[in-house]
């Protein structure tokens, strides 16, 4: 393997890491601003102009707080929990295509850390591993409330993973590939998957809310019943890692939603832009479009959080197992029938 590829990929990985961190940081500010806006308040406005330095101040506060440790026999696991939560939140970004080909210095550069054949399965795999961070942290806290919060969060995530996987199968039957790059290439111009698979998109969106433990599915940190959920015993930056991982997850899941269903970096008139303005400029607009879509989804997450109250636990399980899973199976059947009809029609020559 030649060394330029390694350098190129390392730069892409570093940039993606930095952007994820930045987006997660500013999501915390955006969350508070959106909450304030929806509740007719002003929100944080003291640190910097319009509160622009607030995330830095928050981070500094978390770093300088006293590190409290509960009396637990599993100190190592207590440390490992937030680390797993953070690293799994960041690992998913490896397969997301952030843009099409750049043509620089006489070579094509693809804005993606790695284009593997099984990208979608990789995402599902990392999601299912992310449960360990919560479970280990909650158990190692040596606290009944933490354990109950961890068990709740984990069972919720496992339940919704099933519906999520099934909703993706309908999409895969249509696209015929698991590679995210090919999926986004198929959605050129306005051929976005959301128009062909609206039900699949809806199920995936609901499951994404449940997977990131956001309201209305944030039963894991239901204050009235469980104090703080699985991170009750955590303090200082370990607590910060759990909170930060949630926002990083939110950013990554918004990116996946945008790539899978909303065309990724595609925008109407992209081929025209390629012809008239060249590949690179069209691509820069594409990246901006992708980030606009991601920010839209992040805003949607926050909007829902401050609009819909939290579900009861039995309602959550009912929704997951009795409504979403049958719905996604029906969606698979409908997709199969439509694909079969189209194939028969083309076979008979209609």
């Amino acid at each position: 393997m030649d060394s330029t590829i390694i350098i190129e990929k390392s730069i892409i990985i570093l940039v993606v890491f930095a952007i994820t961190m930045l987006m997660a940081m500013y999501s915390t500010l955006a969350e508070r601003k959106v909450a304030a806006w929806l509740q007719d308040r002003i929100g944080p406005n003291r640190a910097g102009k319009g509160g622009i330095l607030q995330p830095l101040a928050d981070g500094l506060k978390l770093f300088s707080k006293e590190e409290f440790e509960p009396n637990t026999p599993n100190r190592f696991l207590f440390f490992v929990g937030p680390a797993i939560a953070m690293s799994t939140a960041l690992m998913t970004s490896a397969v997301i295509p952030w843009g099409d080909k750049f043509h620089l210095f006489g070579r094509d550069i693809i804005l993606q850390a790695t284009d593997i054949d099984i990208a979608l399965l990789y995402i599902i795999g990392i999601l299912s591993i992310g449960v360990y961070g919560i479970m280990i942290g909650g158990w190692a806290s040596n606290n009944k409330f933490s354990l109950m919060g961890a068990v709740r969060a984990a069972s919720q995530m496992i339940s919704y993973e099933v519906a999520m996987g099934l909703s993706l199968i309908a999409l895969l039957m249509m696209t015929g590939t698991l590679s995210l790059r090919e999926i986004s290439l198929q959605q050129s111009e306005m051929n976005w998957n959301v128009f062909y698979q609206p039900l699949s998109f809806l199920i995936f969106l609901i499951c994404a809310f449940a997977e990131t433990n956001r309201t209305p599915f944030d039963l894991a940190e239901c204050e009235t019943e469980l104090i703080g959920g699985y991170h009750t015993e955590y303090s200082s930056m370990k607590m910060g890692f759990y909170l930060f991982a949630e926002y990083a997850n939110m950013f990554i899941s918004s990116a996946i939603l945008a790539v899978l269903f909303f065309g990724g970096y595609n925008y109407p008139g992209m081929s025209w832009a390629v012809e008239n303005w060249g590949v690179n400029i069209a691509n820069i607009i594409g990246i901006a479009v992708l980030f606009a879509k991601i920010c839209g989804f992040i805003f949607f997450y926050m909007w829902v959080r401050w609009t819909i109250p939290r579900f009861r636990y039995d309602q959550l399980m009912h929704l997951g197992w009795r409504i979403l899973i049958p719905l996604s199976i029906i969606n698979i059947v409908i997709t199969g029938i439509v694909i079969l009809r189209a194939e028969i029609a083309s076979y008979l020559g209609f």
Partner: peptide
């Protein structure tokens, strides 16, 4: 292997 064993079976075990 990761999805089935680490992601599903072992999590239920831990549970």
């Amino acid at each position: 292997h990761l999805i089935v064993y680490s992601g599903a079976i072992m999590i239920l075990f831990l549970f």
